[in-house]
Design a binder for these strands. Structure first.
Length: 604
DNA sequence: AACTCTGTTGAA
DNA sequence: TTCAACAGAGT
């Protein structure tokens, strides 16, 4: 079973993995060797968000299934002294590390509905999640040579180099995994790719003048009231024709005619009604679909409702929305949360840890509990402001309460942080059955075929170094960002990977990125870890020992390097900070040789 | 402009 | 009660 524990806990509701939208000049050279980049697949949320100190929980989660194994670090882990027995650590260099502890302990995650988990219709057939949690010494690896003294010697770690001997066979064509239906154009539509059947919400061709503003406000101000009102009223534009909004799907919600009122009220929030717009605005926001013909403030967003293809697919293959999809990513993510089947215990309620503990079997209910009982603000601090009708203030007293996520066992100092962790954690668990691993493996195998890689390695007598001219690196971009990259002095040595050769000019340190593999030779498995900004990430897990990973990357010295990782992994790593490599500075893998030039600019 | 998030709504 | 569909607002 593919483990997808690489998902980070802190992603801003963005679960795009392979953001093929990103363009990075450093990857240009790889383009030809990446013929399988899926245009729409399930993407690793791990690397779509700024790094969060809680990321370490990802390690905790994944590694529990391999507790009794002996692992072998490869060269990147050199310098790590395996002498730490404890299982509790805090991510150094994390701005919030003081508020978290990472107690690796068996979680209470239920693997089934034994807890009486509510299973929605949309969750039907969701692959079972069967995390097997054991303590895993891997959890204590503070990071790929980043923190000497963390790895447990008793765990049997030792360090040698991974030899990639073969590429992985049996990759799956992503199109088979993600069978996106071809949009069915409507012959008369000016937008052949979009749905010309009207939205069930707005099944009108012509827009009459807006109803009285008083009506509009009545619909929008009070949900219960408006529903009651609507159900008891008839729209002057009432239209009894029912539409099949999605030709590929037989039914849809919103065939109610009264929904037109909702539209009017919502479209009119600011301007009074949607027809108060001046001619220019109105023309600009006029939906071109004849059957719609309405005016929207955000026409582009509205057009999503007309498209036949809904690109945001539920990652659960057995879910109807795996094929059906959502028009909006946020809706997809929100839906995905409904697949969670475990039990979540509120560690902030009295009785936590006892039989009287408060538990939840649905993430959304748990979240609601956190907001209503523990004063959690729903939006993360850096998201947009909530309306003045927001929840009660976050209590300082509550912030002193401690709670452990029963899903991943990460302990949080307060409910707010836990709340912000919850979505990501649950989604990660839910998506562990995600088939994208197969896609990725295919990508990797294609990269592994690269002739230049092999030739260069031979030429240099090195496992992973290659020279060729690449575009200049913009040094201006790196300065500022590099300042906050691994400023932790205690990590200086830990970024050291293989012994320095080549120019051997100086020992590298403070590289923004390093990575390596930890290998379990008994089970013939390995996992890839990445260190970025002094924090560890599990990038891949359950890889075959002979599974080859290679990636070429450009350094500021104008040379490209080959690592033992794949380009997708690199891109994920790049996405850790939600920034491009140019913005973040150079990407220096830990297990490449130092170069004669350009090193200084990486040093703190 | 693109993206993310919130709030509303109705169907199930 | 739950959750998908949607528009609008915030970032």
């Amino acid at each position: 079973m593919v483990s997808y524990a690489e998902y980070p806990p802190a992603m801003p509701h963005d679960f795009e993995l392979y953001s093929n939208q990103e363009h990075h000049p450093h990857f240009d050279l790889l383009a030809t060797s990446q013929p399988y980049l899926p245009t729409s697949t399930y993407l690793d949320p791990t690397f779509s968000a700024p790094f969060d100190p809680l990321s370490l929980q990802a390690f905790s989660q994944v590694s529990r299934s391999q507790s009794d194994l002996r692992y072998h670090f490869d060269g990147i882990a050199q310098g790590v002294k395996p002498n730490c027995q404890h299982q509790h650590y805090s991510p150094e260099g994390s701005p919030n590390s003081a508020s978290h502890s990472f107690d690796v302990q068996p979680p209470n995650l239920s693997t089934s509905s034994e807890s009486g988990a509510s299973v929605s219709s949309s969750a039907m057939g969701s692959p079972s999640l069967n995390p097997q949690y054991h303590h895993d010494p891997w959890n204590s690896m503070t990071g790929l040579g980043l923190a000497p003294g963390i790895v447990q010697s008793s765990s049997g770690f030792d360090y040698d180099s991974i030899v990639a001997t073969d590429k992985l066979p049996g990759c799956v064509d992503p199109t088979l995994i993600q069978p996106f239906p071809t949009p069915i154009p409507f012959a008369q539509s000016p937008y052949p790719e979009i749905r010309t059947t009207p939205s069930p919400r707005f099944p009108f061709v012509e827009q009459p003048p807006s109803p009285a503003p008083s009506n509009a406000s009545a619909y929008s101000q009070n949900r219960a009231g408006s529903r009651q009102f609507k159900r008891g009223s008839q729209s002057p534009y009432l239209h009894t024709q029912a539409f099949a909004p999605y030709p590929n799907f037989p039914t849809s919600r919103r065939q109610s005619d009264v929904s037109i009122h909702s539209h009017h009220s919502q479209a009119s929030r600011k301007s009074g009604n949607s027809y108060d717009l001046d001619d220019e605005s109105r023309e600009k926001g006029l939906c071109p679909i004849p059957e719609c013909g309405r005016v929207f403030k955000d026409l582009k967003a509205h057009m999503l409702t007309h498209q036949n293809e809904r690109p945001e697919k539920c990652p659960i293959a057995t879910c109807e929305y795996h094929l059906k999809g959502f028009a909006r990513k946020y809706d997809k993510n929100r839906h995905t949360l409904t697949h969670y089947k475990g039990t979540m215990v509120c560690g902030f309620c009295p009785g936590s840890g006892s039989a009287a503990e408060k538990s939840f079997n649905r993430a959304d209910v748990f979240k609601r509990h956190l907001t209503s009982v523990h004063g959690v603000e729903q939006a993360p601090p850096n998201s947009r402001k909530k309306s003045p009708t927001g929840k009660k203030a976050y209590s300082a007293a509550q912030s002193n309460l401690a709670g452990t996520c029963s899903t991943c066992s990460v302990t949080f100092a307060n409910a707010q942080e836990f709340y912000e962790h919850l979505d990501d954690c649950v989604l990660r668990v839910v998506q562990q059955a995600d088939p994208s691993e197969a896609i990725n493996q295919k990508l990797l195998s294609s990269v592994a075929d690269d002739k230049d890689v092999a030739e260069t390695m031979d030429r240099n007598g090195l496992p992973n170094a290659i020279d060729y001219v690449v575009p200049n690196y913009d040094e201006e971009d790196e300065d500022e960002d590099d300042l906050d990259i691994d400023n932790d002095d205690q990590n200086d040595d830990t970024y050291g990977g293989l012994p320095i050769s080549g120019s051997g000019r100086k020992k590298r340190k403070n590289y923004p990125v390093s990575w390596g593999c930890a290998t379990d030779k008994m089970k013939m498995k390995k996992r890839v870890l990445c260190v970025y900004d002094g924090q560890r990430r599990l990038l891949k897990d359950d890889m075959m020992l002979d599974q080859e990973f290679e990636v070429r990357m450009t350094l500021p010295d104008g040379k490209n390097y080959v690592t033992d990782l794949d380009v997708q992994t690199l891109k994920r790593a790049e996405a850790i900070h939600g920034a491009t490599a140019e913005e973040r500075g150079p990407w220096v893998p830990d297990n490449i040789l130092d170069t004669a030039e350009g090193d200084d600019q990486f040093l703190a």
